[in-house]
Design a binder for these strands. Structure first.
Lengths: 226, 226
DNA sequence: GCCAATATTAACAAATTATTAAGACGCAGT
DNA sequence: ACTGCGTCTTAATAATTTGTTAATATTGGC
């Protein structure tokens, strides 16, 4: 079988990783395209319509999640396979990834054989119908598919960061997430924003859901609690 | 500070790089160990069992790959996190590094913020998902995940220092902690506060939980006892 | 009863978070 | 490319909580 006609778009800000994956996929005969950030990825994807896009989650400019959203918004790319690259054990990334319509995730460190077999399995797959179940907590429901939160069946829309922050906090109700947890999971380990940014997002969520859903543990962080 | 107990072993033959990383990690409160080649690294690692080892790939004597292999062969170090330092164009080093069991790589040039946030992300992988089980003592339960203490199922919130102090005392019920123990473990060895500060915190805890949970051993310290 | 150690209280200082508004940025539609 | 819109971030300031100290009272062992 020949893979020549199968286009795979690789997206990562680390040239080393890009090169490494490119090498291994070309060896398998795939038609490999490269992008070094989310914006470029979206652009190339629209032009080339690849079968599969492998996206690093953590990237400057536009991260993988956002890029994925943009890609999914494009009609021609609605059913393109998208796999995320994540660091080992970063379950939240996986979660967020699936939220925006990822089909699979591949965890770093990447090993050649695993990479190729994973890709083959993905390409073999015909239907993609894994709906992320909506999460129900108290009188609110968080629907990861539509990026909507319902409070008493009333839909409230959240911008991306707010949604991801709320999503993180509600992933383990009652548990305190430190500012560091929040920063690295919502913003990524390499993107550095000030601490006040978190406060502001918390405030916006509180404005929409009420002051009492998110509790402040001074000196530690925040937690979602019903 | 909580990072004090986290040992990080830095391995590089370039004294400048070593010093640079040491400076940045010490600033974060980590317990930093240094080695200038692979052989030394293996030796120190076996003795100190650090949580994380950052290895330069290119080194005289014994290179990073070989050192990594030796480290992984040691049972006690099997699950230690290992990150490689790579230069931009060492594209194959990744492959080799991951094959011998590396967890991540950090590419040069090293930027302080990226270094530290990367390290935090790495360390979180091992520590995040293991939930600290709540401790039950008598009619009270101490839940580190939610920063709450329950007395007869009734939640009582504690500010950080009080919580940490109570947490320390309850870590070994019945055992007496000297004022020195308390100071160094709750306040850290560098920050110096007066002895009365401890008394005040003890008092605040007693106000919330009742006078009898913490006993004073005059001239020695305090103990938690039901 | 004496004395050093601890308790207690309230006032002060430091640290952390809340709030608000303004600017930056990207995107969509024109 | 221009404009308008929504989102994200920051800066500045206010509000609040937490931590520390100092001063005074009390305790418990000798």
């Amino acid at each position: 079988m020949t893979n020549e006609s199968i286009k795979i778009l690789l997206v990562d800000d680390e040239p080393d990783i890009l090169e490494f994956m490119e090498y291994n996929l070309k060896k398998e005969g795939y038609n490999v395209l490269l992008a070094k950030n989310g914006a470029e990825a979206v652009e190339i994807a629209k032009r080339e319509i690849p079968q599969l896009i492998i996206l690093d989650i953590m990237m400057p400019e536009m991260d993988g999640i956002e890029a994925c959203r943009r890609i999914r918004e494009t009609k021609e790319l609605e059913h393109v396979l998208i796999a995320f690259l994540t660091a080992r054990n970063e379950e939240y990334s996986q979660l967020a990834g699936f939220d925006v319509g990822a089909d699979d995730y591949i965890s770093k460190p990447i090993k050649p054989r695993i990479l190729t077999s994973r890709i083959k399995a993905l390409l073999r797959r015909t239907s993609f119908n894994q709906e992320t179940p909506a999460v129900q907590i108290g009188n609110m429901r968080i629907d990861r598919d539509s990026y909507l939160v319902y409070k008493n069946d009333e839909p409230i829309s959240f911008p991306r960061k707010e949604f991801e922050l709320l999503s993180l906090l509600t992933s383990k109700p009652g548990r305190v997430f430190t500012r560091e947890d929040i920063l690295s999971r919502v913003w990524g380990s390499e993107i550095v924003v000030g601490d006040r940014t978190i406060d502001v997002h918390i405030r916006k969520i509180r404005e929409k859901l009420g002051d009492d859903v998110i509790k402040t543990i001074k000196g530690i962080g925040y937690k979602f609690d019903i």
